Amino acid sequence: MSKGPVMVSAEETAKNKAFLEQMAASGAERYIRRHSKQARWTHGITIIACILLCISGLFVFVPALAAAAGADTVFAIRMSHRVIGVIFVIVPLISAIMAPKGVKHIFKNLFDRWDSDDKKWMMLFFPYLFMAKWIHMPDQREVKSGQRFADGMLWFAGALMGITGVILLLGTTLFDFGSGVHGLTLFLHDIGFLLIAVFGLAHIFLGAGIFQPYRGTYKLMFGDGMVSESDALYHWGHWARKEIASGENVIEKKA
Rank of each mutant, 00 (worst) to 15 (best):
M226Y: 02
L186P: 02
V62Y: 11
V89R: 00
A18H: 14
G209Y: 05
E229F: 04
K37H: 03
M221A: 08
Q140L: 03
F75T: 15
R148F: 09
N109M: 06
F59N: 02
G178I: 03
H235S: 09
D151W: 10
A99M: 05
H182P: 00
R241H: 05
A197Y: 13
G158K: 07
S80P: 03
I45S: 01
S116Q: 04
S246E: 09
Y214G: 02
D176R: 12
F126V: 15
E229H: 09
C54L: 14
M161N: 05
P138Q: 05
K15V: 12
L195I: 15
M226L: 08
I32A: 08
V89C: 10
D117P: 01
K253S: 10
D117L: 00
D151T: 11
M161D: 00
H238A: 11
F175Y: 14
I135D: 12
H189S: 07
R113A: 10
W239Y: 04
A10R: 07
G223P: 03
V62A: 06
L65F: 14
I77S: 09
F222A: 12
T42V: 04
H189K: 08
A232N: 11
K15F: 12
E248H: 07
I204R: 02
G223A: 08
W41D: 00
Q147Y: 07
Y214D: 13
T13R: 15
H189E: 07
K3S: 09
F126G: 03
A232I: 11
I84K: 01
H105K: 13
W134Y: 12
L170R: 02
K3G: 14
R40P: 00
F75Q: 13
W114S: 11
K119V: 14
G171D: 10
A28T: 15
G102M: 06
A150Y: 05
G216V: 07
G207Q: 07
K133A: 12
I47S: 15
R40Y: 01
A202E: 12
C50V: 11
V89W: 08
K101C: 01
K37M: 04
R34N: 05
A71E: 15
T173Y: 01
F88H: 06
M79N: 13
G165W: 00
W41N: 02
V8D: 01
E248T: 12
W155V: 14
Y128S: 07
N109P: 00
H43C: 08
G178Y: 04
T173I: 05
L184F: 13
L233C: 07
H43T: 06
M123C: 11
I251V: 15
I45W: 04
S246P: 03
V181Q: 02
K17T: 15
M23L: 15
L53G: 00
E29R: 15
L93N: 13
G146R: 11
A197H: 06
H238V: 13
F19C: 05
L124P: 03
F199P: 02
Q140C: 05
A25D: 13
M23H: 12
H235G: 04
S116G: 00
A14I: 11
M131G: 08
S246Y: 00
Q22I: 09
